[in-house]
Design a protein around this nucleic acid. Structure first.
Length: 598
RNA sequence: GAUCCCGUAGCUCAGCUGGAUAGAGCACCUGCCUUCUAAGCAGGCGGUCGAAGGUUCGAAUCCUUCCGGGAUCGCCA
């Protein structure tokens, strides 16, 4: 709706200018508008260098001629100046005021429905260990992408896939039976996922001890690693699980139940949820039929031993096995089956987005290629939202080496940090403890989420636990603070409703600080559009920061409530309200809440 | 060995569909609370945009090579 509204006015006008002045015009799309650099006067700038062949003149006369034509024919263009090949255009204040008037009455980040339905898978935890910082990046990213797509007018189905079966959970089960003494979350006071994680670690410790013992007894290392009794127990447990052994299934269901309670507590705390959860125990046998069908159709081939393969060498990839010689399936087989199942279950999905770390780039390339070869019409709508690892100063997080940053602990620390800062400032002394705690949760989570979301998803990022996450500067709390300050201002002015109504337009003239804020608002729809197109919350995060920064400068230098001129006061209140509403929506898109005071 | 990602200020990151003198935050230094919330504002310090070539009127941005970091290439998940 508001996207590039200035462009839709100016681009044809520039074309007309070229036509009238030089007899030919550039393509509308080739005209680049860029923000005018602050050292020159202007709002938007056109570089005429690319069009000198059309004009047959030098850069300055070309820009001059176009500028004069624009001023004469386009009401929105107030004046211009030319510096080298750059045509700096000053847009009339009336245009900005007109935009503000429209924006004041609507949500500029609500797009018209596209009619498209999309699925975003944004969590895929294993049930043998608690969530850590890497999971948080994954979850926040995918959740935010879902929100952004919703804001952009799409229907979004949010799902997780739980890796609830396999050797990893059997390891925890074996260890719990050996060392657990019947311990439960209730008896131990431990969160369920933490409890099960504890026994996974216990398994690893016992396993290593047994291996060491075998090696000491003269066993070669490679054999020792395969023969350790506790590992054999786990493998036996897995076989019994597959054979539906009631006792094993019972233990498995119990321990997974503890883990889900733990996960759900964390999900609830960070404010995310799922429309549907898939469990690997229900889907791990899928895909086999589809692969066999592919063999019949000649998409796949069999080797002499009976195993089934796909040949991706023509596409620059490798051959990949899809079914073992004994007919059992592999991870990718299952992924083929679940993808197909999802499109059956949710007909009309135009896209399916997998939020998974970049270590699986190759896997998804292969998976998507296979589904394309199988001829599914929806295959082009598959997308791997790949993100970089979160590194510690010491390098990669490794669960076995105990260098993971636990999600719950980290959230606790952030909330404690927010509390410590908040209590020091003592602006909130009149709040009850419960209200305070809720507020510090909001702030701590905002700091954490913003920290993880402001970085380009595909880049690796560094987290230094010792340095902790800032609450000042380019942070979530900074944005929250700006919002709270505006809400307070509006409250004092008696403008509580979020659209404050009409702005006195027409002849008002804008201060630079006012115009900067309105321009920030003006470009926001394009920002959402960009974020939705690129599936990139960082674009949204960074522009929100730019907007509130511009607002803070305005706030600090221009009076609002103390302004005596009623129309100026109304204008500034309207601006403030629009910034608050847009900020709130933008933060919603990031999955971050915004407080009424702080 | 092959493929992919990344390299911008002391640190963490923007900018990358080619455009003017490369921007923020943190840290460090200076100012600003008897005026709408100082988790703020204004200013200072800080850069061979990994290196070298190339394309171009113009390159942090595109191409090539090299260096450095990471990931993947399993009848694991």
């Amino acid at each position: 709706m508001f996207q590039d509204r200035l462009r839709t006015i100016l681009a044809p006008a520039v074309q007309a200018a070229f036509n009238d002045c030089f007899g030919q015009s550039p393509d509308a799309g080739s005209i680049g508008f860029q923000p005018t650099r602050p050292e020159f006067e202007g709002d938007t700038t056109i570089n005429v260098f690319p069009f000198l062949k059309l004009s047959g003149k030098g850069p300055e006369p070309t820009a001059q001629a176009v500028g004069e034509h624009l001023v004469k024919h386009v009401g929105e263009v107030a004046r211009f100046n030319v510096v080298k090949g750059f045509l700096n255009i000053v847009v009339a204040d009336a245009y900005w005021l007109g935009f503000l008037n429209e924006a004041a009455g609507t949500d500029i980040l609500k797009f018209t429905p596209t009619g498209q339905k999309m699925m975003v898978e944004y969590a895929s935890p294993n049930t043998n260990k608690p969530l850590h910082l890497g999971h948080l990046r994954n979850i926040f990213l995918g959740w935010s992408v879902g929100r952004i797509l919703e804001a952009a007018g799409n229907e979004v189905v949010k799902v997780q896939v739980v890796n609830d079966r396999g050797i990893h959970i059997c390891k925890s089960m074996v260890a719990w039976r050996m060392y657990g003494n019947g311990e439960t979350p209730a008896t131990s006071g431990l969160k369920g996922d933490k409890l099960v994680g504890k026994y996974y670690v216990a398994f690893d410790k016992a396993y290593k001890a047994e291996v060491a013992g075998l090696i000491a007894a003269g066993e070669p290392e490679a054999d020792a690693e395969k023969k350790a009794p506790i590992l054999l127990d786990a493998q036996d447990m897995l076989r019994r699980w597959e054979a539906n052994d009631p006792e094993v299934r019972m233990l498995w269901a119990t321990m997974n139940g503890w883990v889900y309670d733990g996960f759900n507590a964390t999900y609830a705390r960070v404010g995310v949820g799922f429309d549907k959860s898939y469990y690997e125990s229900n889907t791990y046998l899928l895909g086999k039929e589809d692969v066999l069908k592919g063999v019949e159709n000649g998409v796949f081939f069999r080797k002499a031993d009976g195993s089934v393969w796909v040949d991706n060498t023509p596409e620059g990839l490798d051959e990949k096995v899809l079914l073992r010689a004994d007919g059992t399936s592999l991870y990718i087989t299952q992924d083929i089956g679940t993808a197909i199942q999802r499109f059956v279950e949710f007909p009309g999905l135009s896209r399916m987005i997998y939020t998974v770390g970049n270590e699986q780039d190759y896997h998804f390339k292969v998976l998507f290629l296979i589904l394309k070869k199988l001829g599914f019409s929806w295959a082009p709508g598959l997308f791997h939202l790949s993100y970089g690892m979160v590194d510690l100063p010491s390098g990669k997080m490794k669960s076995r080496e105990g260098t993971v940053v636990d999600a719950d602990d980290l959230i606790d620390e952030m909330v404690a940090e927010a509390r410590s800062t908040g209590e020091q400032l003592s602006k909130l002394d009149d709040l009850g403890e419960q209200e305070k705690q809720a507020l510090f949760e909001q702030i701590g989570l905002a700091a954490l989420k913003y920290f993880l979301l402001k970085v380009d998803p595909k880049k690796r990022m560094l987290f230094d636990p010792k340095a902790s996450i800032d609450l000042q500067g380019h942070t979530g709390p900074f944005i929250q603070y700006t919002y709270a300050r505006i809400r307070s201002l509006l409250g004092k002015a008696g403008v509580q409703a979020e659209p404050p109504g009409q702005v006195p337009s027409a002849n008002a003239s804008l201060l630079p600080e006012e115009k900067a804020v309105i321009k920030g608002l003006h470009q926001f729809p394009a920002v959402l559009n960009e974020a939705a197109t690129k599936l990139d919350p960082s674009a949204m995060a960074n522009h929100t920061y730019e907007l509130v920064k511009a607002y803070n400068t305005f706030y600090q230098t221009v009076p609002v409530l103390k302004e005596e001129d009623a129309s100026k006061r109304a204008l500034r209140l309207a601006m403030s309200a629009a910034v608050a509403a847009t900020t709130k929506k933008a933060m919603w898109c990031l999955g971050i809440e915004v407080p009424e005071r702080m």
